[in-house]
Each structure stands twice: as C-alpha cells, then as structure tokens.
C-alpha cells in the first residue's frame, strides 16, 4: 500500500521539529534552512502550515529534468533526486508549480522531499500529529491531485 504524508495544519504549533529532523536526516545538521519541509506562519505565528512535496504522479520536476536525475522510487512512490546525475541546472525548480524542489547552493544540486526512503523523519518528529505518514487513500492527496490537474498544461 502506497503511503504519503498527511498534513493537518490545524494541529501545527510551528515548533519546527519537522524541519530539524528533516535537516538532520538529509544534511547531518540541525538547521531548518536545510529542511525539505517548511513551516509557513501566518498572523505572526497564530497559524502555521507545514508544506512539502506531494510526490505528484506526473511529476513536473521529473519530466523537466534534462539528464534523468529525478526518478520515481518504485517502493515509496517518492520522486528522488540522484545527486550524482543532477547537474544543478535548476529547470525543475521553475517547472514545479508547487515550488517544492529547490536549489541548494552548498552542493550545487537540487533538493526535495524523498519520504526518507519510507520512514519520513518529519512525521516521526512531529509531537502533535500535524504530520503523519498514512495510506495514500486517507490523505488530502486527492485535493492535491485536483490542484495538479488544474495546473496541467494539457487536458484530455
């Protein structure tokens, strides 16, 4: 069963544990600036939205990559960046209409959520269950899909 991240902003207290966990998992440091998931605060922190890649099926980033550096992990369904192949051209960063694949100046490559290979550390770290890792059918996945279709450049 494919799983995905379920995000419930109502439960988010903006504690940034997810960003810390993500940064540590991927970069070995506790630095929210290096996180693949990002908390956006509204009304001076009264409201917060955790935001990251939804691993959309017809991934814009994957299709736009000129050197096949982004591929789908058959087990987790995550679109993963192969750092050894990525040349750092950044085309994916403008092609993704969700803004969830970003350039990392330190490495000269792009970074995005890879679901930590099936054990997402953000969900693990979240103390309020604002981020959980559940069967895809339970999530707001369909809403995201709807949005993706709206952004599509073609229609059947």
């Amino acid at each position: 069963m494919q799983k995905s991240l379920l995000i419930d902003p109502a439960k988010c207290t903006s504690c940034l544990q997810c960003e810390m966990a993500c940064s540590f998992e991927h970069e070995g440091v506790f630095n929210p600036a290096k996180s693949r998931i990002k908390i956006f605060e509204f009304e001076h922190g009264a409201r917060a939205i955790p935001y990251t890649c939804t691993q959309c099926a017809e991934a814009w980033c994957m299709h736009a990559c000129p050197v096949e550096a982004i591929t789908k992990n058959a087990t987790t369904g995550a679109m993963e960046v192969n750092e050894a192949v990525c040349v750092g051209c950044k085309v994916c960063t403008i092609a993704c209409p969700f803004g969830t694949i970003n350039y990392n100046k330190d490495t000269g490559k792009v970074i995005k959520c890879d679901l930590c290979g099936g054990d997402p550390q953000c969900a693990e770290a979240c103390p309020t269950d604002a981020i959980t890792y559940v069967d895809s059918s339970w999530t707001g996945y369909e809403r995201m899909q709807e949005w993706a279709v709206k952004t599509q450049t073609h229609q059947a």
Binding site: K38, W60, K90, T93, I94, A95, C96, P97, F98, G99, T100, I101, N102, Y103, K105, W147, K150, T151, T153
Partner: peptide, 14 residues
Amino acid sequence: LTQHVGVIRGLVQT
C-alpha cells in the same frame, strides 16, 4: 531567489 520559486509558475499558470 532560489526557494519556492516554482510557485510563481503555479500562480501564473492557474
């Protein structure tokens, strides 16, 4: 600008 720059495409295209 390098972070979340893709949302500009999202805004324009939708």
